[in-house]
């Protein structure tokens, strides 16, 4: 009998099928990479086009943003201040409430409560943001006006507060995962020294899980910076450099919505502003991510 040829496939069809699947998988992975690269490149190109007409110094030093008016001014700070203000208000709500919820679920609640409450909390994250936006505009703002009569119809306070509510499940759910991942041996060690539940949670478990907790907070902040519908509906359309939470403002995302909805001609200067603002937004989240990476490494308490 002839020597078996090891190079000859036993089943040629199977070998070809294997090859096709490999290529399909590679293509699927490549799509997301090319899309990301495409977005970044188009942002950069259009942003360069913008800066060929407007000086970067004006962009960074002017305090007015009026690209759609006759008297065009291109200072980015009014949009940045509004984004920072609404996001900061949101974090004031989301971080404490989210962390308390996470600590309760991970360290105090029994299994049954945890299994019921966590999915319920995550439903909050499934509510469309447009619903949150109208909730802020038509419910929270009128309510707050009972206490703050000078509050404008559109304001960053109620937009920020509602955005904070939207972000609670992100902080709570991801922090809970980080807290639960801390090995039980550390809990036993702490209880064995006569710690109360609260001391175990705050002095041992939270520090051990801090990198995951910080990651959840930064992710929530990134979401706040990029959040569009709530601020577009409830925070107003008035670019102004202020940190007063009671007056209408315009965030970077609100501006993008405004221009996209309007009849801005393609290729015009006001069209290019979209990309300049978009690029600033991108830089914001990019820096946030690097910052969180650094924080996580700096504060991580490694166990095992």
């Amino acid at each position: 009998m002839a020597v078996t040829d090891l190079r000859k496939p036993i089943n040629p069809v199977r070998a070809i099928g294997e090859r096709i699947i490999q290529i399909a998988l590679l293509l699927a992975a490549a799509v997301s990479i090319f899309t990301t690269a495409g977005i970044v490149f188009s942002l950069i190109f259009e942003t360069i086009a913008f800066f060929s007409e407007v000086s970067i110094i004006e962009f960074l030093t002017d305090t007015e943003w009026t690209p759609l008016f006759a008297n065009q001014r291109f200072g980015i700070w009014p949009l940045v201040s509004a984004t920072v203000l609404t996001s900061a208000i949101a974090m004031v709500v989301a971080v404490p409430l989210g962390l308390i919820a996470a600590i309760f679920l991970s360290e105090f609640a029994n299994d049954r409560v945890r299994r019921t409450v966590k999915p319920l909390l995550e439903i909050l994250a499934g509510i469309p943001t447009v619903v949150y936006g109208y909730f802020a505009l038509t419910f929270l703002t009128p309510l707050l006006r009972n206490f703050i009569p000078t509050l404008s119809i559109f304001n960053s306070l109620s937009a920020g507060l509602i955005m904070g509510v939207m972000l609670i499940p992100i902080v709570a759910s991801l922090s809970e995962d980080a807290l639960s991942a801390v090995p039980n041996s550390l809990r036993e060690a702490a209880y064995g020294l006569g710690s109360t539940r609260f001391e175990v949670a705050v002095h041992v478990i939270l520090p051990a899980a801090i990198s995951g907790v910080i990651a959840s907070i930064v992710l929530a902040f990134s979401r706040a910076v990029g959040e569009t519908m709530i601020v577009a509906i409830a925070a107003g359309q008035n670019p102004r450099l202020t940190f007063d939470p009671t007056v209408p403002v315009m965030t970077m995302t609100s501006y993008i919505v405004q221009v996209s909805l309007g009849d801005t001609p393609y290729g015009s200067l006001s069209y290019h502003t979209l990309y300049a603002v978009g690029f600033t937004l991108f830089l914001f989240t990019f820096v946030l991510n690097i910052f969180s990476y650094w924080m996580v490494r700096k504060f991580r308490e490694v166990y095992d």
Partner: peptide
């Protein structure tokens, strides 16, 4: 009870803190 009856476990389980802080924790 646990403050007066201490415990050492099967697997060493120091806190992910400094040696000093581990002892000072209790």
């Amino acid at each position: 009870v646990r403050r007066r009856i201490g415990m050492v476990f099967q697997k060493p389980n120091p806190f992910p803190k400094s040696i000093y802080e581990n002892v000072a924790y209790g």
